[in-house]
């Protein structure tokens, strides 16, 4: 491929990519919060930013929304240079913030109408759109309630409905299911799947592996401000970790660390638990079968194992 072809391909990508970032940096004083992030979010995919607290996820989202200027790098969102034309980009973006910021001075329905006015939307079609969104969020019976009367799950559903008021091409969600009970979380997940089916692009941050695994077509694992891996959840597991995990707990782990370590591809000790990673679990399971006192748990490797391998196990505060 010659240089001209490269340029053409690069230009096409910048036109088609919903978010295209190159060398994105953010520095606060002496601290580099985001350092050199490259992103290509494709149209119609659900893209996850997965990382521990303080990894730079929310800062990256804020830069995408034009709410904080990058200290360096290039950023295009929906074809617009950001932050220069962030307002234009935001006209086609819906945002579900990490902490609910529904307007407590208005009812459920008024919240949607007021938010629509921030986009310059009004008229007869808007009322219909609001009704559709209230139905989408299962809130059609609560249109006249005050925000304070809603449960956490209802508030999050209303936030999602509000984010859709402008028929956005891109929906940005910062930890969409944090603090929700399982029922509410399932409901949000279903709705997010519906949005992807409608052809919208989603970017979400999360530190729930299950959420990332279930929802995201592709994931970027981000830590200390850099992307350390980016692929589909399945490929990430295949590329970074052995498919079987055997977890041992109990009195006699010290012994198994040497015995199991010899049979497994990799052994890791975390507190009083021993994790044995292997491609072929049979020899290990046979050996464990001969030790009836030893408690163990055999499970497939998952995203959490990848995540902990790549980002380490020490606590993040």
């Amino acid at each position: 491929m010659n240089r001209a072809e490269h340029t053409i391909i690069a230009e096409t990508q910048s036109l088609t990519a919903v978010v295209r970032a190159r060398g994105l940096c953010k520095r606060y004083g002496e601290t580099d919060v985001v350092r050199g992030v490259d992103l290509d979010v494709r149209p119609g995919e659900c893209f996850g930013l997965l990382g521990p607290n303080g990894a730079g996820k929310t800062t990256t989202l804020r830069m995408i929304l034009g709410q904080t200027p990058p200290s360096g790098g290039e950023l295009h969102v929906l074809g617009h240079p950001v932050p220069e034309q962030a307002r234009r980009a935001r006209r086609r973006i819906g945002v579900v913030p990490q902490m609910d910021n529904l307007d407590p001075d208005f009812t459920v329905r008024e919240n949607l109408l007021t938010y629509a006015s921030y986009f310059g939307l009004n008229g007869a079609a808007l009322g219909e759109r609001v009704d559709q969104l209230l139905a989408f969020a299962n809130l059609d019976g609560r249109t006249r309630e005050q925000i304070q009367a809603l449960s956490g799950g209802m508030k999050r559903r209303l936030s999602l409905a509000r984010a859709l008021i402008n028929e956005p091409d891109l929906v940005v969600l910062d930890e969409p299911s944090t603090g929700l009970d399982p029922q509410a979380r399932q409901h949000i997940w279903q709705r997010l799947n519906t949005l992807v089916e409608q052809g919208r692009t989603l970017i979400l941050t999360t530190h729930y592996m299950e959420e990332a695994e279930r929802l995201c077509d592709r994931l970027a694992i981000i830590d200390h401000g850099t992307i350390i891996a980016c692929d589909s959840p399945r490929n990430l597991v295949a590329a970074h970790i052995e498919p079987h995990v055997i977890e041992l707990r109990g009195h006699d782990i010290g012994d198994w660390q040497t015995r199991g370590g010899a049979l497994a591809a990799r052994a890791e000790r975390v507190g009083d638990t021993l994790l044995l990673y292997t491609r072929d679990p049979e020899p290990l399971l046979q050996a464990l079968g001969g030790d009836p006192d030893q408690r163990y748990w055999h499970r497939p490797a998952g995203l959490e194992d990848v995540f902990l391998k790549l980002t380490g196990r020490e606590l993040r505060d």
């Binding site: 234009r88 945002v95 913030p97 307007d103």
Partner: peptide
């Protein structure tokens, strides 16, 4: 407290 401005800044307002 209400973060009303935050919601506005998520929309195309500056």
């Amino acid at each position: 407290v209400q973060r009303t401005w935050g919601a506005m800044l998520d929309a195309p307002l500056t």
